[in-house]
Design a protein around this nucleic acid. Sequence first.
DNA 1: AAGGCGTGGGT
DNA 2: TACCCAAGCCT
Length: 292
Amino acid sequence: MTLADEAIAWYAVNARDLPWRQPDTTPWGVLVSEVMLQQTPVVRVEPAWRSWMTRWPTPAALAEDPPSEAIRMWGRLGYPRRAMRLHACAVAIVERHGGAVPSALDQLLALPGVGTYTGRAVATFAYGQRHPVVDTNVRRVVCRAVEGKPDAGPATTAADLTAMEELLPDDEARAAQASIAFMELGAIVCTARSPKCVDCPFHDVCAWRLRGEPLPEGPSRKPQRYAGTDRQVRGLLLEVLRHATGPVPRQRLDMVWQDEVQRARALAGLVEDGLVERLGGEDFVLAGDAPQ
DNA sequence: AAGGCGTGGGT
DNA sequence: TACCCAAGCCT
């Protein structure tokens, strides 16, 4: 049994029952789930995905509504630029591909918000193609099981794709199963902290375990702070705008943060990023929410 | 090519 | 309590 075989057998028994894994899920549904799952935990994505797919079952449906509606529906999933990019993605799918999510990897990668991971995930999980699909879970699993190191490096590199490629079965369908199985393994067994090695199908062959599960050496990555950053201010500003039914005067936005310089910088950033529009005077709305 | 970009739950 | 972490992308 290869690692892929072990993982596939384990997945068949242990996979979580997630809505986007239902066999009737469309490629659009897969794409939406992948974008939502970029840096947001499954438990928070699940209800959001259901609501989104009910309201916008197709790219064309989303493309007909303004970006502001997508930003509102995004709610508190975080990184709301993803909502805007998903909307832009829907528009591009309608314009370039007649409303059908493309199956070719290069066309997927050309869509807004679709990067190395997401493009391969859609090509693989929605269309059953054979591609290495490497996310943070896969990197960690491969790194431990194959290389015997406690944790993977920071970025997805060509080397990561090559490493996973070599583990994939030749058969398309089984290759796709292997990728989702490795991801699931990393998500619920081979976790970043306190991995559950007793439950792992790689228990007897994992290079990291056989080495005695050494701790990571050297200084850990510098923690990214949130409190007091522009990101927090942007979040507060956006929270106000999401709930507004009409244009919001600057006075109202000024209430969310004391530091005037930082507040202005955060608001300008939101406008710069296309999430927010400034109307004629000192009024602001979510992008696409301008009256008339 | 580091660093910016939200949010909330776990330890 | 303060981190740490969660199916990344973009510049």
